[in-house]
């Protein structure tokens, strides 16, 4: 494991921030028309995140709703440009690439979205959804595309005789497989999976998770696996990254993190994970107040809820520091 640090990472996230001007949604616009006093706000969705991911690794990304997981995933996949910082793929900054290099990097990192229905074009047949990009980008020539699509459908467990169907003719689990097939068709090295099993039924979830694990081995893929389900992340990941309000607060190998969490937020998270074995438990209230990403607390973002907070935590932001080999945490208690 320690050796991993010496190899060049497949992906480097370098001090990346992403800010959004929060424009009004429909409800907001309606309310504004009815005379409500509403302004646009700046959201610090991702705040100076740095992370290395090694070739072939599965990194789980965990955190509460709105903490910036999807935004970070989208920056990695090139869907969003970072507001600050940059992302390096095999040592080269993606932003600075041009021409063939830029195209290659774009193909090598693919994203699989949470909601398969809204990310698949409803008017295209499955064969075109899967086959379009590889032909356009010359991954395969158009004469061989039927065979190629068939091969990929088989690989993700879809019956190739359905190639001429449309997305709405499939179940949720099958649509997620179509999304996976589309991503695989351009022969990526790196997949960003954003809540890729969250919308699926429990029984189908297991099928798709098994598929991800098999593909990793067969194709030597690297994953950034975003999920709020700690059970799923524990099962699948080699390493886990915990985010809180836009910042990474802890990074550790999966077994270490679950056995011995360092950051007080990680500890709170793990204490609350529901388990089949824990029956009729006494739930506990969250201490302190829950902050918003629009107006995050000063110092350590977690301090209003942290049972161990002390004076320094209110003023100074704790840096993410290596506390032992391959383990990072952002908490003043480690000073």
């Amino acid at each position: 494991m320690a050796l991993n640090n010496k190899k060049e990472p497949i992906l480097t996230i370098n001090n990346v921030s992403k800010r959004f001007i929060k424009s009004l949604d429909l409800a907001g616009k309606i309310a504004q028309r009815f005379g409500a006093d509403i302004r646009e706000e700046v959201v610090h969705a991702v705040d100076r995140v740095s992370l290395n991911i090694q070739d072939g690794e599965v990194v789980g990304l965990v955190g509460e709703s709105g903490c910036g997981k999807s935004t970070l995933g989208r920056v990695v996949a090139g869907v969003h440009e970072p507001s600050d910082g940059n992302v390096l793929f095999r040592g080269k900054a993606i932003e600075g690439l041009t021409g063939k290099d830029a195209q290659e990097a774009a193909l090598k990192i693919q994203m699989i979205f949470q909601d398969p229905m809204s990310s698949l074009n409803p008017r295209l047949r499955v064969q075109d959804i899967i086959g379009e990009a590889p032909v356009v980008h010359g991954v395969v020539d158009s004469g061989n595309i039927t065979d190629y699509v068939e091969e990929i459908m088989l690989r993700v467990g879809l019956d190739p005789s359905y190639a001429r169907r449309y997305p709405h003719q499939f179940s949720g689990g099958q649509r997620q497989r179509i999304g996976i097939a589309r991503a695989l068709a351009v022969q990526p090295d790196f997949l960003v999976c954003d809540e890729s099993v969250a919308a699926l039924d429990v029984s189908i979830q297991a099928q798709v998770l098994n598929l991800f694990m098999r593909l990793r081995q067969e194709l030597n893929l690297t994953y950034l696996f975003i999920s709020h389900d700690l059970g799923v992340v524990e099962h699948l990941s080699d390493r886990v990254v915990i985010m809180y309000l836009g910042r990474v607060v802890e990074v550790a190998p999966t077994e270490t993190l679950f056995a011995d969490p360092n950051h007080p937020y990680t500890q709170a998270l793990l204490a609350e994970v529901p388990r089949l074995e824990t029956r009729q438990r006494k739930f506990a209230p969250v201490k302190g107040e829950i902050p918003s990403p629009i107006d995050p607390p000063t110092g350590c973002h977690f301090h209003p809820r942290c049972p161990k907070a002390f004076a320094k935590c209110h003023q100074e932001t704790p840096a993410l520091k290596e506390i032992e080999s391959n383990r990072f945490s952002a908490c003043h208690l480690n000073d």
Partner: peptide
């Protein structure tokens, strides 16, 4: 029984999950 067996924490880390074939 199938549902319970497919819960990730019931399975060994890194080993394929028990799964119910097919769909509803």
């Amino acid at each position: 029984d199938g549902l319970i067996s497919s819960v990730p924490s019931r399975n060994k880390r890194g080993v394929p999950l028990a799964q119910i074939p097919g769909m509803a």
